[in-house]
Simulated assay, not measured.
Amino acid sequence: MGNQVDKLSHLSYAEVPTTDPNGLDTEEDGPRIGVSYIFSNDDDELEDNVDGPDLDQNQEEKHYDKRNEVECAIYNRDECIYEKSVIAKDMETYSPENLLNKCKAGDLLEFVATSQYPQWVVYVGDFQVVHLHRAEVKNSFLTDASQGRRGRIVNDFYKFKPLSPEMVVQNAMEQVGAKDRELSWRNSECFAAWCKFGKREFKMGGEIRIGKQPYRLKIILPEKQTHVLEFQCLEDLIMEKRRNDQIGKVAMIQELANHLSNVGSIRSDPNAH
C-alpha cells in the first residue's frame, strides 16, 4: 500500500510505549499513557470477502451486542472532535434492508459485528455505497457491502463541518478503483470520513508525527472512570480506537486492567457519560 511503512503487530496495553518508564505521566492531571505507534491495515484482517463466491453465506446476520461497544471521545487539544456513547440515539443499528430506507446520498454508514473491525461506507444513492475494502476502493450494493452486519448512520460521530452531499458523493466516486499504492487511507473509517469532511488528517501522512501529542483518546469505563491515551496524529488514534471496537469492551477493560493493576492510572471522571 502506498506510503505505508512495514506492518507491525497490534500492541497490547502492556507493550504500549509510555511517556515515563513506569507508565505514569509526570503531569498530575494529564493522560497516564502517551502513545504514537504504527498499526497494520485493519481492513486487511477482516474475515470476509465482498466479491468472493461465499457472498450468500456471508449475508446471514452476524452477532452484534450493543452492550460490548466501547464508549469514547476524541479531543484535539481541548476540542472534542468525536464522541460515541451507547445511550445516544444514533447508536441504534438496523438490518441492511431497513437501513436502506433511512439513508440518503452523502451519508456515512457503519456496519458492525462482534469481533470484527467496523466497516465504514459512503452511501452514494441507488442502493449503492463506496468503501475501502482489502486495499481497494469499491462501489458495491449496500446489502452486499454489509455482509450480514447490522448498520447505522454515523454522520454525527465526528464533529467537523461536513461537505455538501454532492461533494461527498463526488469525493467517493472519484476514488473507485484506486488500490494498493494509489491509496491514501489505512482503513475504511479514514476513507469515509475524508470523503465526508475533506480533512487531510484522515490521510496517511496527513500530519507530521513530531513534537507534542495533540490528540487524546478518552475511553469511558464503568463507574464513571476513564482512561486517556495520547497520540501525535489522528490517523494513529483512529487505528487504536478501531482495535478497541474489534476486541470489544469486555476484552479491552480486561487488557487495560491487567496492565494498570499496579499503576493506578484509571481515574474517576465526574463528567463521564
Rank of each mutant, 00 (worst) to 15 (best):
P222L: 07
D51H: 08
P31Y: 12
N68V: 02
Y37P: 01
C80D: 05
G248Y: 00
P270N: 10
C195W: 09
F39M: 01
N139C: 13
D78W: 06
I219M: 08
N244V: 00
P21E: 08
F202Q: 03
K102I: 15
T226Q: 05
L256Y: 08
A88P: 04
K89L: 11
V176K: 07
Y158L: 11
D65K: 04
G2L: 14
D6P: 03
D20C: 10
N101A: 14
I208E: 13
G23P: 09
S9A: 13
D180I: 00
H259L: 01
A178N: 15
Q175N: 13
P118S: 03
Y13D: 01
Q246D: 02
M239T: 09
E79N: 10
E97H: 06
V168N: 06
K241R: 15
Q57L: 12
E240K: 12
R150S: 14
D43M: 08
W120Y: 15
N258R: 11
T26P: 00
K218H: 05
Q232T: 03
Q128S: 10
K199P: 00
S184M: 12
E83C: 03
F39T: 02
S36G: 08
P222R: 05
Y82K: 02
A135V: 08
V129P: 10
M252H: 11
Q147F: 02
S140M: 12
E47N: 13
Q254P: 00
G23V: 04
T93S: 06
E47P: 01
V250T: 13
T226R: 04
H131Q: 13
F191T: 05
K224Y: 11
R149Y: 05
V16Y: 14
T19G: 15
P165V: 05
Q225A: 03
L99E: 09
A172T: 09
R200P: 03
V168P: 04
K66N: 07
I210A: 13
E28H: 11
W194V: 02
F111V: 00
N101L: 15
F197E: 06
N3S: 14
S265R: 07
Y13C: 08
K104P: 01
A272W: 05
E110W: 00
E110D: 04
P31A: 15
A193R: 13
S40C: 08
E255F: 02
M173Y: 11
K84D: 03
A105P: 03
D126A: 09
V250H: 06
R134T: 06
C233R: 11
A251D: 14
K203L: 05
H131Y: 10
Q225T: 07
T114Y: 06
R150C: 09
K161G: 02
D65V: 01
E136R: 12
Y82H: 11
L221A: 03
I210F: 07
F202S: 04
H227T: 03
G52N: 02
I266Q: 13
L11A: 05
L237P: 03
D245A: 11
K104W: 03
V5I: 10
F39N: 06
A272Y: 02
L46F: 01
F127N: 14
R67N: 13
S164A: 13
H273D: 14
A113L: 00
N76E: 14
V130D: 02
P162Y: 07
Y37L: 09
G52Q: 05
S146Y: 07
Q57R: 09
R242G: 04
H133Y: 14
